[in-house]
Write a protein that binds this DNA or RNA. Structure first.
Lengths: 141, 141
DNA sequence: CGCAGCGTGATAGTCCATTCTCATCTAGCC
DNA sequence: GGCTAGATGAGAATGGACTATCACGCTGCG
């Protein structure tokens, strides 16, 4: 038979699909666990790996921390990482002209742009009063 | 007394200074070991940490891998990571207009641009014939 | 030169993210 | 309902990067 439908996998797919931004494994774990109590972390890793291999998900590597996951097949975009809450957001636009930055003889294949700062929620907060990192799904903007 | 001058530390400083690009710990280790045989990896870590705290070095975080080190105090620039040899190079220019990419309400503080592709040396090679990753210092361009 | 103490080398240990193991469970086909 | 292979959950195990430990060596001051 192979590839069975399970509540766990469905919850994981739903978690990533619902968020409009890349989620960390912890975020996915917590979101899916809210739907399927008792869900194990190993199952999350297993399914993330598999959904990625199947082309449903894509990993977003972050400098200095563990990768995050987003839906594969989204059109070209970049990300914004909030210094305060640690959540990552999608940035639809992209400036061109990167080829001009490349030295002669170098072959440019792809690029990553990561913006850092405060998300709208955290920028509005009175400094230390923001929601903690990775403890929730994107419930804003 | 404090802060003694040792051959080990001098070799480490020299390795990073000489390279015109960010070096991984391994690259620094190998380069410094060439000058000071018997050099230990712990010493490299110790000194990198310290040189960073002293403001001599800066770490360059790389998505999905360990950080690299470059001289602090260089003016704003970005990097190019070769898919083949794994070496990282400096890209002096930077396009502006990033503020325009940020959604309303978001506060932009800094940004990272990472270009991927082949460096001039590897782009010229007949595909698989390039020098291996991280096993050498920047001996080119 | 002599001494004090920082620096070093080798290795064990720590910290995390991720994977493996295995007994148990269950989706899907009969 | 019954069966079987794929899935799961819990915890152990792994791997990689980095740090701590500690005995010994070397710098730098007197």
């Amino acid at each position: 038979m192979s590839v069975r439908r399970t509540d766990q996998r469905a919850a994981i797919r739903r978690a990533v699909s619902a968020a409009q931004r890349p989620l960390s494994v912890q975020e996915i774990f917590e979101a899916a666990q809210a739907e399927v109590p008792g869900l194990g972390l190993a199952t999350v890793y297993r399914n993330l790996k598999r959904l990625t291999e199947e082309g449903f998900l894509r990993t977003v590597q972050v400098p200095g921390e563990a990768g995050r996951y987003e839906l594969a097949g989204l059109c070209h975009h970049h990300h914004f990482l909030c210094d305060v809450c640690g959540r990552m957001f999608d940035i639809p636009s992209c400036m061109g002209g990167l080829e001009r930055m490349v030295p002669a003889g170098f072959l440019l294949r792809r690029h990553e742009v990561l913006l850092y700062g405060r998300c709208d929620g955290c920028a509005a907060q009175p400094e230390g009063a923001c929601v903690g990192a990775s403890g929730l799904l994107g419930s804003e903007s």
